[in-house]
Amino acid sequence: MSDLPVKVIHVESGKILTGTDAPKAGQLEAWLEMNPGYEVAPR
């Protein structure tokens, strides 16, 4: 599992989470399930 943060964006508000606020790569799927409305942000 990776500890690198994955940049995500809230589709409706446009809020972007990066760095320490962003979910870790190894926890991404579970985090997205618990935080509806967020998607992986385009690079």
Results as ranks from 00 to 15, higher is better:
M1D: 15
M1T: 15
M1I: 11
M1A: 06
M1Y: 14
M1W: 00
M1E: 13
S2A: 01
S2M: 14
S2N: 02
S2E: 15
S2I: 07
S2P: 03
S2L: 10
S2W: 08
S2G: 14
S2Q: 06
D3S: 07
D3K: 05
D3M: 01
D3A: 01
D3Q: 04
D3W: 01
D3N: 08
D3H: 09
D3R: 02
D3F: 03
L4V: 05
L4M: 14
L4H: 11
L4K: 12
L4E: 15
L4N: 15
P5E: 15
P5V: 12
P5G: 14
P5S: 15
P5Y: 14
P5R: 15
P5N: 15
P5M: 11
P5D: 15
V6I: 13
V6D: 10
V6W: 05
V6G: 11
V6C: 03
V6Y: 11
K7C: 13
K7M: 10
K7R: 12
K7V: 12
K7H: 09
K7D: 15
K7P: 15
V8I: 06
V8F: 08
V8C: 03
V8Y: 03
V8A: 07
V8W: 01
I9K: 12
I9N: 10
I9M: 11
I9A: 12
I9C: 04
I9R: 13
I9T: 12
I9E: 08
I9Q: 07
I9Y: 06
I9L: 05
I9P: 09
H10W: 00
H10D: 04
H10P: 00
H10G: 06
H10T: 00
H10E: 06
H10L: 00
H10S: 06
H10M: 04
V11A: 08
V11Y: 13
V11E: 08
V11L: 12
V11N: 10
V11T: 12
V11G: 09
E12F: 00
E12W: 03
E12I: 10
E12A: 13
E12Q: 13
E12C: 04
E12K: 14
G14P: 05
G14D: 02
K15L: 13
K15M: 08
K15N: 11
D21W: 00
D21S: 08
D21G: 07
D21K: 08
D21M: 12
A22Q: 05
A22C: 10
A22I: 09
A22K: 08
A22V: 11
A22F: 05
A22Y: 02
A22G: 08
A22L: 06
P23L: 00
P23Y: 00
P23F: 00
P23Q: 00
P23M: 01
P23E: 02
P23W: 00
P23S: 00
P23V: 03
P23G: 01
K24S: 08
K24Y: 01
K24T: 06
K24A: 13
G26C: 09
G26T: 12
G26W: 11
G26V: 04
G26H: 15
G26M: 08
G26P: 06
G26E: 14
Q27F: 01
Q27W: 01
Q27T: 15
Q27D: 14
Q27M: 10
Q27E: 15
Q27R: 05
Q27L: 04
Q27N: 14
Q27G: 10
Q27P: 00
L28D: 07
L28Y: 08
L28H: 03
L28A: 05
L28T: 05
L28V: 10
L28G: 05
L28S: 06
L28K: 08
L28C: 02
L28W: 00
E29I: 02
E29K: 13
E29Q: 07
E29R: 09
E29F: 01
E29V: 04
E29H: 06
E29L: 05
E29C: 03
E29Y: 03
E29S: 10
A30Y: 06
A30M: 09
A30D: 13
A30P: 07
A30K: 15
A30G: 10
A30H: 11
A30V: 06
A30R: 13
W31P: 07
W31S: 08
W31Q: 13
W31K: 11
W31C: 05
W31H: 08
W31G: 11
W31L: 04
W31N: 11
W31M: 04
L32E: 05
L32Y: 02
L32D: 01
L32M: 08
L32C: 03
L32N: 03
L32T: 01
E33P: 01
E33T: 10
E33H: 11
E33C: 05
E33Y: 05
E33G: 08
E33Q: 12
E33I: 06
E33W: 00
E33S: 08
M34C: 12
M34I: 09
M34L: 12
M34K: 14
M34T: 12
M34W: 02
M34N: 14
M34F: 05
N35A: 01
N35C: 01
N35P: 00
N35G: 01
N35Y: 04
N35D: 00
N35F: 00
N35V: 00
N35M: 13
N35R: 02
N35K: 01
P36K: 04
P36A: 02
P36H: 02
P36Q: 03
P36R: 03
P36I: 02
P36E: 05
P36G: 04
P36T: 08
G37C: 01
G37S: 04
G37P: 02
G37F: 04
G37A: 05
G37W: 00
G37K: 04
G37I: 00
G37T: 03
G37L: 01
G37V: 00
Y38C: 06
Y38A: 03
Y38V: 03
Y38M: 05
Y38N: 05
Y38D: 03
Y38Q: 02
Y38G: 04
Y38F: 11
Y38E: 04
Y38S: 02
E39K: 09
E39M: 12
E39L: 02
E39W: 00
E39N: 15
E39S: 08
E39T: 10
E39R: 09
V40L: 09
V40M: 06
V40A: 08
V40T: 10
V40F: 00
V40K: 08
V40Y: 07
V40E: 09
V40R: 07
V40P: 07
V40Q: 08
V40G: 04
A41Q: 08
A41R: 07
A41W: 14
A41F: 12
A41E: 10
A41V: 14
A41P: 04
A41D: 05
A41N: 03
P42G: 13
P42F: 02
P42K: 15
P42T: 10
P42E: 14
P42I: 09
P42A: 11
P42S: 12
R43C: 08
R43D: 15
R43Q: 14
R43P: 13
R43H: 15
R43V: 14
R43L: 12
R43G: 13
R43I: 12
